Computed example of a mutant assay.
Amino acid sequence: MLLPMLAEWLCANNGKDARATRMVRDMHLFLIPTMNPDGFAKRRRKNRGGKDLNRNFPDRIKHAGTDLRLRQKGTQPETWAVMQFMLGKTWAGAANFHEGAEVAVYPWDGYASGTLSAAGGASDAPDSATFKFLAQTYADAHTTMSTSGGEV
C-alpha cells in the first residue's frame, strides 16, 4: 500500500507542501503499484500463467553474453512490459518494494554460482560499496531488521 499512499499524498499536498510540490514539479516519478495484478487480486505470488514474476527477470550471470533487450523464452508479458518500460528511460534512481521477507537488497546482490550462497563468490556491482552501505543503514534503522542478527 506504500505506493498508492505516496500517490495520494503527492496529489493531496501538491501546492500545499513544499516537498510534495517540488517532487511533482521537478521529478519524473513513475509508480507501478503492482506488476502482477492477477496475483495481487488472488493474493498469490504467481500470475495468471502460473509464473512467479519475482523470479522471471533474466539473471545477468546466467545469461552472460545474451542481449537482454531481446525477449527470452519464458519471459512473462508483465515482466517483458516492465523491462521495455525501463529500457526506454534514462534513470537516475529507482526503488523497488517487495512483499514478504523483510530484507534490504541491492543491485547484483547475487552470487556468481547462481545461488544465494557466498561460496560461489560475490557478484559485485561497480557501486557495491555504496549499495551495501545504504542497505545496511536502512536495515539498522528498521525495527525488525535491526534485531534479526543478519548483515549485508
Results as ranks from 00 to 15, higher is better:
L2Q: 09
L2W: 04
L3D: 06
L3T: 03
P4E: 09
A7I: 09
A12T: 11
A12C: 06
A12E: 11
N13Q: 08
G15T: 07
K16C: 04
K16E: 14
D17P: 02
R19Q: 03
R19G: 01
R19W: 01
M23K: 03
V24G: 03
V24M: 15
V24F: 08
R25A: 09
R25I: 03
D26A: 05
H28L: 02
H28V: 08
F30N: 15
I32Q: 00
I32A: 01
N36L: 07
P37L: 00
F40D: 09
A41W: 10
K42D: 05
R43F: 10
R44T: 14
R45T: 09
R45P: 05
R45W: 13
R45C: 11
N47F: 06
N47R: 10
R48A: 14
D52S: 13
N54I: 07
R55T: 06
F57E: 01
F57G: 03
K62V: 13
H63V: 10
H63W: 14
A64F: 00
A64Y: 00
G65W: 00
L68C: 11
L70V: 15
R71K: 15
R71V: 15
Q72F: 02
Q72L: 10
T75W: 03
T75C: 00
T75F: 01
Q76G: 06
P77A: 05
P77M: 12
E78S: 13
W80F: 10
A81G: 05
V82L: 14
M83D: 07
M83W: 07
Q84C: 08
Q84L: 09
Q84P: 02
F85G: 06
G88E: 14
K89W: 11
T90M: 09
T90F: 06
W91T: 02
A94N: 00
A95W: 07
N96D: 12
H98S: 03
H98W: 07
E99T: 15
E102L: 02
E102K: 01
V103D: 08
V103H: 09
A104R: 05
V105L: 15
Y106N: 05
Y106L: 01
P107K: 14
W108E: 04
W108L: 01
D109G: 06
A112V: 13
G114S: 08
T115M: 02
A118G: 11
A118W: 08
A122V: 09
A122H: 08
S123L: 01
S123A: 14
A125V: 04
A125H: 12
P126I: 06
D127L: 14
S128Y: 03
A129Y: 01
A129Q: 13
T130M: 15
L134Y: 08
L134F: 10
L134Q: 07
Q136L: 08
Q136R: 14
Q136T: 12
T137E: 10
Y138Q: 05
H142F: 06
T143M: 10
M145C: 02
M145Q: 09
M145N: 04
S146Y: 07
S146V: 03
G149F: 13
G149A: 15
E151S: 11
